[in-house]
Design a protein around this nucleic acid. Structure first.
Lengths: 356, 356
DNA sequence: CACTCCTTCTGTATCGTTTTACTCGAACGA
DNA sequence: TCGTTCGAGTAAAACGATACAGAAGGAGTG
């Protein structure tokens, strides 16, 4: 059944193989009447169009790009930031008639290196023209494989010089603005919640050195500190597990239940901040009055819940990444997108009641 | 650079092409020492492993399955139900070293048929062995194309006989249980929120006929009615837009603000119910006391927020679908998974205060 | 010693396209 | 009338692998 090929159609229609091929790919290369006949014969034979694998082989184009991430799929897609960026990417992919191949990999920091290697093989087997390394550990073997394969590679979350394209924001400057804002509000005891990717039993306190080695949001963290200035007492924690509301809730609970509760909390992502918001609600604390809270990203839920945050063009990040991968006319190789501090009701001035 | 092939490696290593191929695919067909030598030569030449497209062409296997859905990507992935099922599928796909290709299509009910056709072409171009039609309109041309291509096709949301596999739940029985439960609690004025997929300006009231033609959750709706019995006054509404918290909020607001507010609301999905929960919170209504609310699916957030709902094995649905597509030893072609009514705090007895 | 059986490796056909260069007649301009 | 150009179609060579049958050589067996 499935073995109807260009050849069978050609024979049935009484034309050459090339002509049938052209009927599909280059309609202007043959007369309308012949094309019509070819297409009808094809339909009659149940020909489903040129075999994609053969086409890829011959034309050296896969018409698909890979989407690699070292997260469980369920985590990756519960994150509204990821989903937003993906949506932007998908938009461009559709324009270019290009598929999106999910390539979930094991995270590098696993204690089973051979399994990581094995998972990286997915990068070898994928029929793709390029990859968006949307959340890929810097040392992951899959990177090396992509390079070996000569795949075009674009990243939105790191600065690996091997990348053929980078879509960034000025993390540091954006974070600095947050720090300055919180400082200006008078807060002098501030909690920071970072995304550690460490699988510990509970919330861990991190000092600079630890943090530098384990977190990928280092720039952001640095920016916060810079903006807050030297005389603010800082308390940085990392929740167990991944970037999620749940993790944010845990970290929030931890900070809120300390005896020297901070007067402001900054989270490296909105998703984490959403969790803190939850923890506050459980404790009857009003955001902006009892405690100031800032997130990062401006995901849709942030607006709904009045979360002060840094807006970044999430979908646009995906769109540009897609263009870098697919549009030959798009030659820019490093884009830094603008951000904007969006002040909502979750932040407010530090009051005297704070200094109990 | 990229044109290192099996042949070049074979020449460099002084063996035949077949041997190099075997070194990658059938390690037991050649001696360890030769294999070692071949692999080293390959690495030295920068050979990235067998070209996936060529391999697919020759072996007639793509090592990838398609994931088709007629939703915007961002909608599809904001839905925790989808994400859960996808996670299950991804698990199996990983076991079988198989990629997951996203194939977003335009919904069929669009008023631009030629664009729908064009989007369906993605189904032709995809290098895949099979598809999971996870949310695909029954009349969509992409179905026809999949059949033409002879692709193995599995569905989790419809009963199309053309499918090679179906993973279902007994929608009707599960919904009936919900209806009976609500009835038993004494509720006699009930609102139902269905997912209409219709793009109207606001919430629309639907009668049976309309609903039957536009919604895909017909079985579920029928079950609710059946369980509720004939003497319950029903009020069915469909929010604009897709299955989302936002839509649920709108529908909830609509029902809550009627003068004859129902004493119980049933939503065809948890996501919609979550929106209703929000609408209730805004109005200071306590779930389970002021109004009873039931969802469907038992997504993670349902447990957090105490939502009474129908539990179905979401990830398992994906896993089984994956096995149907990939595991030749799995011969079952139609699976009906069990469901369970999970009673939480969002439901309670109808009180006299309800009959104002 | 002749026979079969393994193990290990090789040669060749084939998968289904796209691409490149080429043929062939008709139309065209001078 | 004679090139020349043009449109429409064709032939054959890739593209880079895998499958399958078979060959060479040594080991086991009666």
């Amino acid at each position: 059944m499935g073995n109807v090929t260009l050849k069978s159609v050609a024979e049935a229609a009484g034309v050459s193989i090339s002509t049938v091929s052209n009927a599909y790919n280059k309609p202007d290369q043959l007369s309308a009447v012949v094309r019509q006949r070819v297409l009808e014969t094809a339909k009659a034979l149940g020909y489903a169009g040129p075999n994609p694998a053969a086409r890829s082989l011959r034309s050296q184009r896969a018409r698909a790009i890979g989407l690699v991430f070292t997260e469980r799929l369920s985590y990756a897609f519960s994150d509204p930031y990821s989903v937003g960026m993906l949506a932007g990417l998908a938009e461009v992919a559709e324009q270019f008639q290009t598929g999106l191949l999910l390539i979930p990999l094991m995270p590098f920091d696993s204690d089973r290196p051979e399994e990581v290697e094995a998972s990286a093989e997915a990068m070898r087997a994928a029929v793709i023209d390029g990859v968006l390394a949307y959340c890929l550990d810097i040392d992951h073997p899959a990177r090396e494989i992509a390079v070996e394969r000569g795949l075009r590679m674009v990243a939105t979350d790191d600065k690996d010089p091997r990348m053929d394209g980078l879509v960034l924001i000025d993390e540091r400057a954006a974070a600095r603005e947050v720090g300055e804002y919180i400082r200006r509000l008078g807060h002098r005891r501030v909690g920071i919640i970072v995304d550690s990717k460490v699988d510990s039993a509970g919330v861990v306190e991190v000092d600079d050195v630890q943090h530098r080695s384990m977190s990928f949001s280092w720039d952001r963290y640095d920016g916060f500190r810079e903006g807050l200035g030297p005389d603010v007492s800082l308390h940085t924690v990392a929740p167990p597990g991944h970037n999620s509301v749940e993790a944010g809730r845990a970290a929030g609970a931890y900070l809120l239940d300390r005896q020297d509760r901070p007067t402001a909390i900054i989270a490296v992502s909105d998703v984490l901040a959403l969790g803190v918001l939850d923890a506050m609600r459980q404790r009857g604390l009003t955001p902006g009055r009892d405690l100031s809270l800032v997130g990062f990203d401006d995901v849709p839920a942030a607006a709904d819940l009045g979360l002060t945050t840094v807006r970044q063009p999430i979908a646009e990040r995906g769109r540009i990444a897609g263009r870098m991968l697919l549009d030959p006319e798009y030659t820019e190789r490093r884009i830094v997108l603008p951000t904007e501090l969006v002040v909502r009701s979750s932040t407010g001035p530090a009051t005297t009641s704070h200094t109990r």
